[in-house]
Amino acid sequence: MSGSISDDDGFKGLELRQLSRRVDNHTLVDQLSLTVAAGEILAVLGPSGCGKSSTLRLIAGLDPVSSGDIRLGGRSITALPPAERQVAMVFQSYALFPHLSVERNLSLGLELRGVDKAEIKRELDQVLTLMQLEGLRQRKPAELSGGQRQRVALARALIRRPALFLLDEPMSNLDAQLRDNLRAELRTLLRSTGVPVVYVTHDQHEAMGLADRIAVLREGRLQQLGSAETLYRDPANRFVARFLGSPSINLIERGATQLGLRPELLELADAGSAVPAGWEALEGQLSHSEWLGDRVITHVQCPGQATLKVLSREAPASETLQVRWRKSQALHFDARSGERLPGSSDPHTV
């Protein structure tokens, strides 16, 4: 908790050490430890109520920490009020000041901190140009579109030249089309700040498309931290495996264990076909198929199993099918706890 100069550990990024937040008897964030390097984008991913927003609020200083330490630029900021943390935050609702123009929304904070008028003007011009907001200077938030409001919210965060960038589901109020277009743009912009970025989202596509690394949270606890590829191919448990990927992973019941198989790793054959060596197979009935243009998702009902989803290029030819997979590509999970079991090799090495 001490914030003295001497405890500088030299790490320039953000570091959470055993961070916890408890309210009454409820643990919102549980012993969370992770680091985000300067210039790195970390996505915090999880379903609603998993503690991702609570984590962001702890880092911003909006909620008190129950235990643990938050370090930024090598020193503890746990005890500092939000104003002194040099963080910028983009809220899900954008939280633009509705009674102020775009220009004033950006400049008010600087003004009140006593920044020189000429400098404010210079920064304002620069950020407004960068975010393509010059034409909207005098507009009130109510007169802006959703995308424009988001740009204003980002601009307000950028103009502060923060030491840490926090974003709380900044895309959730935009329509899907705009979201896809903005992802790459936002990634470039966030990278250019050169500071650690923590990006909270419940959307796996957003996390995979934007972030360098992803932290998956569940009930306040970190499930896994790694690149999108690691999380997808080598998930730590069933929760992570199911949360990433669409269509989601197939779970095949096998007594006390479950086999996890991505839909693209399953192959279809006519029922009764010979199973090659090193492969396993189940037989079942075609339930229905979804045509996606370049791919087809085939739903197959096998006895004693949940409907299996198979992603393939061709639609199945018959009604009774064989679903098969390479044994080495299956992930093994404990059926009760959902923990990953040893013995399941990297599913993509053949």
Binding site: A60, P82, M89, F91, S93, P98, L112
Partner: peptide, 20 residues
């Protein structure tokens, strides 16, 4: 969230009241 945004902007209690 409006007040929290102001808080993060570095505004004190009176500034938040007066300006937001």
């Amino acid at each position: 969230e409006l007040e929290e945004a102001a808080l993060i902007e570095g505004m004190g209690l009176w500034q938040r009241l007066r300006w937001i």
